[in-house]
Nucleic acid binder design. Sequence first.
DNA 1: TCCATATTTCGACGAATGTCGAAATATACA
DNA 2: TGTATATTTCGACATTCGTCGAAATATGGA
Lengths: 123, 123
Amino acid sequence: MESSAAIDRLSALAQPGRLDVFRLLVRAGPDGIPAGEIAATLGLAPNTLSSQLAILVHAGLLTSAREGRVIRYAARPEALSELIVYLMDDCCGGRPEICRPVEEAARAACCAPPKSKTPRVRA
Amino acid sequence: MESSAAIDRLSALAQPGRLDVFRLLVRAGPDGIPAGEIAATLGLAPNTLSSQLAILVHAGLLTSAREGRVIRYAARPEALSELIVYLMDDCCGGRPEICRPVEEAARAACCAPPKSKTPRVRA
DNA sequence: TCCATATTTCGACGAATGTCGAAATATACA
DNA sequence: TGTATATTTCGACATTCGTCGAAATATGGA
């Protein structure tokens, strides 16, 4: 991954609205959510959300797919993998104990049972 | 981890100079590097670097320790762990195969042998 | 074709951000 | 105490960023 791509990804996430959108879509899974529903859920104006979605897509964090009148957006988990690899590049040089916590965190977060109160969206 | 803390961390990293600083310190390991040496290595003005370092420390990404006239900065790996957990919160809800790649990436990056040409800094 | 719905694009405005020169602070040492 | 080195703080400047209203585009259906 290139430096400028990493910057694009980080700054895309470094904004409250976009971070909320991304996390919502991470929880929603591969099916994603239509733009309008995202806007309603997060209380964002449709045009504002549209710019934010464009930024997230351009950064490679989301995918979009048209379904009739609706456009569904979904998170792209590999975008996070790539970012982590970039940030931890050459991190421990023979001293794995230094960055082991990061690996542990990824494993723990990945397979933790859902904490949300509402049941998962049906496919 | 709180939303505002995540934003602070992401926007701290979402700037070329600061991202370079953080990655340099990740590679340097727990001993860290003095501010002046960071500035020289990355070709940044001392006062500019100083503001950037302050932002990274305030975001919890770096620690600083004075040693005589010098101040050594070091990366804080747990900052990344916490960020990953926050981003992947409730990510796979029963479908671990979805975010497994992220876990794999963390493991691969963590214990990969150093790729840099120059040998690791001696302790 | 005409209309309603979903989403995006455009243009402008205020707020936040990064960089720089100059000055201030902190430490070491003679 | 005085001086040199390391780092930070201050103030100003141009640039970038997020949001909003209004208008445009795309799709589906009558």
